[in-house]
């Protein structure tokens, strides 16, 4: 705590004008290069990504090839899109555990809309994405209107979504027999002569959308503001409840899109799984330097985080590290990344 002031003689001077030294006292200690510190974490994460890529490139000739890099991006797409949406939630100081099973439920709903109900492709896909938004909306209402802590509210939703996926699908996969084009949403190759799937392009577009939303819009500003000091934001006349609902709903939109892409990738809606995916997405966000305390974070960081995870998994597989050990490696990376981030903050 700051030391204390002893008052000098009382009321000795009536109309004292502040001397220049008084201003100087207040002006003292203005740090320079604040902007540099902000981008340091991204630099750090980016540097780690480069190092990891370099190591794998040396270790195996099969790693640094166009095809493999595309397959890394492809692998990163679904988790990455989940991570993009959940970055917003985490910057507000919240958490969303329902994104993994929520995504699975969205996939099942895509099956319901397209196969069971026979809706046209565009309508079914739009409805699926909106269904994701609905999940987010409910999370947002539970958190900000009912006041349930985000961890609990979304833990509940995680279990509900997992259960509903099984109930609605009758525990069986749903195949997109009515809409064979559905699988091309993720898999369609858009660059001639090369396997560059449409899903990856969608991921890249979503990265740009998320980055603009977070840094250039009122939504992004309030996302940081709420995470930085929620009470003060509310006192400033910002409708915090409404914005939090909006932010969770936005995360839900990303969940819906991820549901479409993952079902499209498999050409079927698999009603099981999804649990654990939320933790992978959160890990990507955290590796990217977003603070779980809220107030700090970036989309660039999240993307780098998602890539680090995908590169690790891919690279370790290529150099034939058994799957059991891959998980250990990812865990270590998370610990190191977050520890480095804490070191940086302490020094700052």
């Amino acid at each position: 705590m700051s030391p204390t002031t002893t008052k000098p003689e009382t009321g000795s001077t009536g109309g004292s004008t502040p001397s220049t030294s008084a201003y100087a006292a207040i002006e003292a200690g203005k740090p320079r290069f604040a902007w540099l510190r902000g981008s340091l974490q991204q630099l750090l994460a980016f540097a780690s990504l480069i190092v990891i890529v370099a190591v794998f490139s040396f270790a195996s000739p099969h790693f640094f090839t166009a095809n493999n890099l595309v397959s890394i991006l492809t692998a990163a797409t679904v988790t990455g899109i989940l991570a993009l949406g959940t970055t917003f939630v985490i910057i507000t100081g919240g958490i969303d555990l329902s994104i993994g099973t929520g995504m699975v439920l969205c996939g099942v709903m895509a099956g319901v809309f397209l196969t069971y109900l026979g809706w046209p492709l565009w309508l079914g896909v739009t409805a699926t994405i909106l269904f994701g938004a609905l999940i987010g909306l409910i999370n947002g209402v539970n958190v900000s209107v009912l006041g349930i802590p985000p961890f609990i509210a979304t833990l509940g939703m995680m279990l509900i979504a997992a259960g509903l996926s099984l109930v609605i699908s009758g525990t069986k996969p749903i195949y997109f027999t009515e809409t064979p084009d559905f699988q091309s949403i993720m898999n369609l190759s858009i660059i001639p002569g090369m396997r560059f799937p449409l899903g990856v392009a969608i991921f890249i577009v979503m990265i740009i959308v998320a980055a603009v939303l977070l840094s250039k819009t009122i939504l992004g500003r309030y996302t940081f503001s709420i995470g930085s000091n929620e009470a003060a934001t509310a006192l400033s006349g910002v409708n915090v409840r409404r914005w939090k609902i909006t932010i969770y709903t936005l995360a839900g939109l990303f969940v819906g899109l991820a549901g479409v892409l993952s079902a499209s990738r498999l050409s079927s809606a698999q009603p099981t799984g999804g649990m654990g995916l939320e933790l992978e997405a959160i890990a990507a966000v955290v590796i990217g330097g977003t603070s779980l305390q809220g107030g700090k974070g970036s989309i660039v960081g999240t993307v780098i985080g998602a890539l680090i995870m995908a590169v690790l998994t891919n690279g370790l597989r290529i150099i034939s590290v058994p799957q059991e050990w891959q998980s250990v490696a990812v865990g270590i990376v998370i610990l190191v990344a977050v520890y480095l981030d804490m070191l940086r903050r302490r020094r700052g």
Partner: peptide, 29 residues
Amino acid sequence: HQEFNLMPDLTVAQNIFIGREHRQAGLFL
């Protein structure tokens, strides 16, 4: 207020005009 009501992660200007930002197209800052 006695306790500071500032958002530490935002800039000085962002803090001062929080909730009163000029928006372009209703969304952009």
